[in-house]
Each structure stands twice: as structure tokens, then as C-alpha cells.
């Protein structure tokens, strides 16, 4: 792929991935299960992107985490916090609105009347 297109796509995807991750954290998930879950839904996320992202979300208090050491392998679970849920709803609403508009703009000829 053209490297320019690649970097533009990465830019577009970056914000969307945060939303996708937040959407799946209403129930507790650990890293690998989250990757699988998103893959089933058709969203590919690199591991090397996911773990730092989860950590950042935790620092921003959008998710909480806990270690489950009962299994033979300890796992760090993440889950939306109350604040995170609030933020996620807001973001989702905005995303829906904006995407609808952008969809209108990008589907040639039908876009104009979508502006308000």
C-alpha cells in the first residue's frame, strides 16, 4: 500500500479504535480476550497498540483494572468505570452524528442537504 495512504488510514483508525475498545469493556476483559472479541466483530487491533491503549485509558480513569491470579496464568482484567461509561455514551453519540454527516458528504450528490 502507498505509505501515505497507510499513514492517513492509521490516523483515521486511531480514534475509532479507542471507541471500539471502550464499547467492549462493559464486561471485564483481559487483553487477549479483547483482541479475539474485536476480531469476531471485524475490528483488527494490534496487540502492541492495545496494551498501551488500555493503560492510558486506565490512567484517564475511563476503565478500572484488577488482576485475576486464580488461573494458572495471572490476567489483568479491564472494565469501564462509571465515568468511562458516561464518556463512552457521549463519544458514541457524537461519533454517530458525525459519521452520518460525513457519510452524507462522502456519498456524492446527496450530501448537501445534510448540513445544518
Amino acid at each position: 500500500m502507498d505509505p501515505l495512504i497507510h499513514s492517513l488510514l492509521t490516523e483515521i483508525r486511531r480514534g475509532n479504535l479507542t471507541l471500539a475498545v471502550l464499547s467492549q469493556l462493559r464486561s471485564p476483559q483481559y487483553g487477549y480476550s479483547l483482541v479475539q472479541l474485536l476480531k469476531e466483530l471485524g475490528v483488527v487491533i494490534e496487540q502492541s497498540t492495545l496494551y498501551p491503549l488500555l493503560r492510558r485509558l486506565e490512567k484517564q480513569k475511563l476503565v478500572t483494572s484488577f488482576w485475576d491470579k486464580s488461573d494458572k496464568r495471572p490476567r489483568k482484567y479491564y472494565q469501564l468505570s462509571g465515568y468511562g461509561e458516561e464518556v463512552f455514551h457521549q463519544l458514541r453519540k457524537e461519533w454517530m452524528k458525525n459519521t452520518k454527516k460525513l457519510y452524507g458528504v462522502l456519498s456524492e450528490g446527496e450530501g448537501e442537504h445534510e448540513f445544518d
Binding site: 483481559y30 487483553g31 487477549y32 496487540q47 496494551y51 493503560r55 488482576w67 496464568r73 495471572p74 490476567r75 489483568k76
Partner: peptide, 11 residues
Amino acid sequence: IALELESAIYD
């Protein structure tokens, strides 16, 4: 981070 990465890699 080390513990999480380790668990992720083994997963």
C-alpha cells in the same frame, strides 16, 4: 507491564 505482557504473549 511485564506481568501483563507475559500473560498476553503466552495467551
